[in-house]
Simulated scan of single mutants.
Amino acid sequence: MFRGAFTALVTPFKNDSIDEDAYRALVEWQLEQGIHGLVPCGTTGESATLSHAEHKRVISICVDQVKGRVPVLAGAGSNNTSEAIELTRFAKESKADGALLITPYYNKPTQEGLIAHFKAIAAEVSMPFIVYNVPGRTATNLLPETLAEMRRTISEVIGVKEATADLTQISKVLELCGRDFLVLSGDDFTVLPTLAIGGVGAISVVSNIKPAAMSGLVNAFNQGDLDKARDLHFQLAPLCRAMFMRTNPIPVKTALYLMGRLSPELRLPLLRMDAKLESELKSVLATDGLV
């Protein structure tokens, strides 16, 4: 179920409230463009600044708009285990197909603490878990050996979003966890290499603005058309770099604004790009025919 190109959706805002119309339109466009799955309330969705009520509303809107056409992997993690349990329980109640659970950030737990965290969530809510490992944001790296132990002892843990950009680590995850363990690239730059060593897809930022290309890359690889997959990899490369001109999701939200799909509004402490950088971003988008 959790294979292919999944978009880590932005959360549109209008006057500091969720812009439901823009969000539904974005979801529908993603589906029309052939995306394989959607992730509401991830890092790209500014989940850290959503209230619990807003978080739940964003998931509900996404599930309702999708209507079972593709899997919905709901962001439900937290550095507070009890809060993660609450959000994961809601993800299940909302009929999301699975939960994306980030490793606890700021607390810097030990590897044993990471295992205990996920065991505690699974003890309260049984549904498919994709663990999200992004040391650059959490300050803790979930080691392959730890993930393998979770795989053995927590049946809900069926895969990982690896955002280390470390192919050596990703390879070791596959070596220790087995080929049926779902490894999704969490870095748009490493989608094709991850697929090449046994990964099953990506949770992507750039697919917010170019969903057909990212899903097409995965499709081409799975169909054995490596030339096409490589062509799409290199075609997407300038856009991938542009999406990280500033902290994610500032550039991708700005790009969607320039494409006429939503407001550029962000939540503090994130700020809009300055005029010079926005102009540079617009040039990249124009070269790709997006504006």
Rank of each mutant, 00 (worst) to 15 (best):
G68R: 12
V58P: 02
A74P: 04
R69A: 12
D64I: 07
K67W: 06
C41N: 07
V72M: 01
P71Y: 10
V63K: 05
E46A: 02
A53K: 12
V70Y: 04
A48N: 08
C41L: 07
I61K: 10
H52C: 13
A76L: 13
G77Y: 09
T43N: 08
G77L: 13
D64E: 15
T43P: 05
V70D: 02
H55S: 12
L50E: 01
A48C: 11
V58A: 13
G45C: 02
G75S: 11
G45D: 03
I61L: 15
E46C: 04
A48Q: 10
R69H: 10
G45F: 00
P40I: 10
V72L: 07
G37E: 00
V58N: 08
R57M: 14
G42H: 06
E46F: 01
Q65A: 15
L73T: 02
P40E: 08
V63D: 09
A53R: 13
G75Q: 03
S60V: 08
G77D: 11
A74Y: 00
V70R: 03
T44F: 02
S51Q: 03
P40V: 14
H36I: 03
E46P: 01
I59D: 05
S47R: 03
V58H: 10
V63I: 12
T44W: 01
A48Y: 09
G37Y: 02
Q65K: 15
T44Y: 00
S47G: 11
A53T: 13
C62H: 03
V39F: 06
T44D: 03
V72Q: 01
C41W: 00
H55K: 14
I61S: 09
G68L: 13
T43E: 02
H52Q: 15
S60K: 14
G68F: 13
Q65D: 03
L50S: 01
K67P: 05
P71A: 11
T44A: 07
E46D: 05
L50A: 02
S51K: 02
K67A: 15
E46V: 02
T44N: 05
D64Y: 08
P40K: 13
V39Y: 03
P71L: 10
G42N: 08
H55D: 10
S47C: 10
T43M: 09
I59L: 10
L38W: 05
V72E: 01
T43C: 08
I61M: 14
E54A: 11
A48F: 12
I61W: 12
A76F: 11
G68M: 14
H52S: 14
G77F: 12
S51R: 04
G37R: 03
V72G: 00
K67Y: 06
V72A: 05
T49M: 09
A74R: 04
G45M: 01
H52P: 12
V66F: 10
G37K: 01
I61P: 05
H36P: 02
K67T: 08
L38H: 04
V39H: 05
S47A: 15
V58F: 12
H52G: 11
H36K: 06
H52T: 15
V39I: 13
H52Y: 15
A48W: 07
L73F: 09
G42P: 06
K67E: 14
V39K: 06
L38S: 05
H55A: 09
I59P: 01
L50N: 00
T49N: 05
I59Y: 04
A76K: 10
V63G: 07
G42T: 13
I59W: 00
H36N: 07
